[in-house]
Design a protein around this nucleic acid. Structure first.
Length: 109
DNA sequence: CTGCTGACCGAGA
DNA sequence: ATCTCGGCCAGCA
């Protein structure tokens, strides 16, 4: 598990796996934690390969608390279902109390 | 090798 | 307050 072996994507997966239950974070927060606050796009792009991994991508939303990535999930409301299943209220792809459920790895970790 | 895309974010008008 | 635009880096054809 050498850092060199761990690509940017792998780091994203690691952080995503560290997201506590019933908690959500943003791409920018992960990117910032990785040292690339401007590369938040890659974080989302990295999630492209999260399919099939133990990465709770449904806990990762955009800065607005919007489930932008839900479009990439299997179903249409699967992401919302998962979040609601964890106690996170979601309304129309939008996380309720997102500010309260927000989990910043750069500060809380 | 070059170019395009991508689940975003921040700043400017 | 809302809308628009550029930029960042990595993977793939």
């Amino acid at each position: 598990m050498k850092p060199e072996t761990l690509s940017f994507f792998d780091k994203v997966y690691e952080v995503a796996k560290l997201i506590p239950y019933g908690r959500v974070t943003s791409y920018g927060a992960i990117a910032k934690y990785l040292g690339a606050p401007r590369s938040s796009r890659m974080v989302g792009y990295a999630m492209n390969g999260s399919s099939g991994k133990d990465v709770p991508a449904h806990r990762v939303v955009n800065r607005n608390g919007l489930l932008t990535g839900k479009h990439h999930f299997d179903g249409t409301n699967l992401m919302q279902q998962l979040l609601e299943s964890e106690g996170v209220k979601v309304k129309d792809n939008q996380v309720q109390d997102f500010k309260k459920l927000f989990w910043d790895p750069a500060e809380l970790l």
